[in-house]
Design a protein around this nucleic acid. Sequence first.
DNA 1: GATCGCCGATGACAAATGTCATGGGCGCCC
DNA 2: GGGCGCCCATGACATTTGTCATCGGCGATC
Lengths: 203, 203
Amino acid sequence: MSPVRVLLADDEHLIRGAVAALLALEDDILVVAEAASGPEALAMARAHRPDVAVLDMQMPGADGVSVATALRAELPDCKTMIVTSHGRPGHLKRALSAGVRAFAPKTVSAQKLAEIIRSVHAGGRYVDPELAADAISAGDSPLTAREAEVLELAADGAPIAEIAERASLSQGTVRNYLSSAASKLGAENRHAAVRLARERGWV
Amino acid sequence: MSPVRVLLADDEHLIRGAVAALLALEDDILVVAEAASGPEALAMARAHRPDVAVLDMQMPGADGVSVATALRAELPDCKTMIVTSHGRPGHLKRALSAGVRAFAPKTVSAQKLAEIIRSVHAGGRYVDPELAADAISAGDSPLTAREAEVLELAADGAPIAEIAERASLSQGTVRNYLSSAASKLGAENRHAAVRLARERGWV
DNA sequence: GATCGCCGATGACAAATGTCATGGGCGCCC
DNA sequence: GGGCGCCCATGACATTTGTCATCGGCGATC
């Protein structure tokens, strides 16, 4: 039986190299390409057409979910999975709706990772139990599309005027959206709201 | 010549295991203990008395710098080094003043990491060039002690009233400190100031 | 001993923000 | 067709926040 051809994408060279080395010990898994950024991951995937793409969540250029979305369109046969340091519930949802087949935190062992890769290659799915529990308890985002969008623009502490300009909305509208978002999240002001939404992965 | 005895502390099992495996290939380096949290790192260090402790910056319980500080007091012969994902300039400074001998991002290769470990063991020091440049260009924190303290309390978006209460200060005083901090940082408001201070590692 | 900077406070004022009511337009679904 | 929810806007209002001047106390430093 031919080995599973794997693409490894992670911006942390130490980790990428180390994981590659560990996976090399498994004789049914073959790391055919490595990448250190989102765009590079896409390029390597096009060039090497791996069976499974193991993507880090946070990478320069494009995050894991974006890459997964692009891969799904370009290389439907390539199965994607996400490995991440900080597993926020919303990320899991976004990933799953992007067609990602597995989602695991970096606290898993290499042994487990190898198992997951095999399982994904065989058509299976995997979600870390703890992250799944978090996602379920966190529930769905109560925010409407614009509320989330405006909240995101407010993320860096910008004043309303700037947010309004960047969103091409009137200042009053922006304040209404932020107010409604903060109230839905139970936050005292938009900044606390941003923090809460971030924690739950809704932005 | 006896091998360098190393303690590896990182909460991400995947990374810790993988790095341990790679270091095991170097015949002059011996990983004698692993830990997944700050307190555990301390306990393992006491038990195994390693030559070099390789610490992750962000760990549950206590961060790398705290552990390094404690180790310096308890086991002066044990040299410490920090490996981190996100190298903020302030972290580097804090680490160096805590007596840490080396500071590197996780983007280094395992080969390089092994070199650094050897160098540290031999009494040398190492600081990633890019991080060093960042630290120098970021300069020293212009904030006074109280300014930084109040800014930290403002970090989660709490209203002034709550900050004042938690800091046992009057609201007016809190506003003065925040105003002065924001002005020093060139921020439009305290929330943006918090973000900037975080980026520079000053909080 | 004078000066300087940090700490803490107060008061006043201006600007930014949060809140609410209200309106019209749009698409969806019963 | 009539409701319903979302989108976008406006205006008014209260509250919060930012800014500034000013004050006193304290420790360091020249």
